[in-house]
């Protein structure tokens, strides 16, 4: 496998660059070793709130998962409604750009004012902010279904349910997947921002705490852990699932 050495080389280059920066200014750029030590400490011995970093990651992950699933689910429902009803399609096509415009921070603040500083508010804010992005991808997918295939299915008198099950849904799978990956990459970030605003657990809460103490090394430790988990999910979960689901493409 020639991917492993390539990844190793870029990783080493990244750490080396970071280390050089830390030589230049150790207070602003704590060394990779110092940050690595903090990661081990936070994971195995716990942060000073006596909770392992893994707990906070898990809490954030739960919120991310919930909002990603909700955003995708809502986008699918609206997308299908748009496909089956012209009026719905026109309404959402007109409003989508508006829905996509408000800055995430504004959405988070407004939702938190309404729902309070809790998990539900984080999930609702992230879902609200990212549903339109999922919808754009799903809607595009639904419009690109080959009408010839639907005509073929009609010629064989396939039922509406069969046409959705065997044509629309499999065709949509690649759009659902690409939407899922995009969402996942984005919702993590926004969920953490929302946590920074005043939630007592999750990665964002620890970032806020250590930032207020002026400790950059601890902030970086959480950032590195966080990036690591996202990459593991990307390569260990999403990639293999996608490869299996789209085996017909590699054909």
């Amino acid at each position: 496998m020639n991917r492993a050495p390539r990844i190793a080389v870029s990783l080493v280059a990244f750490v080396a660059g970071w280390w050089l920066l830390s030589l230049y200014n150790g207070r602003m750029f704590p060394s990779p070793v110092a940050v690595g030590g903090l990661i081990v400490e936070f994971v195995f011995e716990g942060d000073i709130d006596n909770r392992s970093a893994l707990y906070h990651l898990w809490v954030t992950f739960g919120r991310v998962l919930a909002s990603t699933a909700l955003a995708l689910g809502i986008a699918l429902v609206i997308g299908i409604a748009m496909k089956t009803n012209d009026g719905v399609a026109k309404a959402f096509e007109a409003w989508l750009p508006v829905w996509m415009t408000p800055p995430d921070v504004v959405v988070i603040l407004v939702v938190m004012v309404i729902l309070g500083f809790n998990s539900l508010a984080v999930v609702v804010a992230v879902t609200f902010a990212y549903t339109p992005f999922a919808l754009v991808t799903i809607w595009q997918g639904l419009q690109e279904v080959d009408p010839g295939l639907v005509e073929m299915a009609d010629a064989f008198e396939a039922s509406r349910v069969e046409i959705w099950r065997q044509i629309y849904v499999p065709h949509l799978m690649s759009y659902i997947f690409s939407s899922l990956r995009n969402l996942f990459g984005m919702t993590w970030k926004v969920a953490v921002i929302a946590e920074v605003f005043g939630i007592s657990n999750g990665v964002g809460s620890r970032v806020r705490f250590w930032f207020l103490q002026g400790n950059i090394a601890e902030v970086l430790a959480y950032a590195v852990l966080f990036v690591g988990v996202v990459l593991v999910i990307e390569y260990a979960v999403l990639n293999p699932v996608q490869n299996r689901a789209f085996a017909w493409r590699q054909a």
Binding site: G148, L149, E151, M152, A155, F156, E162, P170, W248, R249
Partner: peptide, 25 residues
């Protein structure tokens, strides 16, 4: 039944399953 100008097969189904699609329909 119809044979179209293009094959109009479902790329995500095997050849056997493509035929089954019509049979099931």
């Amino acid at each position: 039944s119809y044979v179209f100008q293009e094959p109009r097969l479902l790329d995500w189904l095997t050849i056997g399953e493509n035929v089954r699609f019509a049979l099931r329909a």
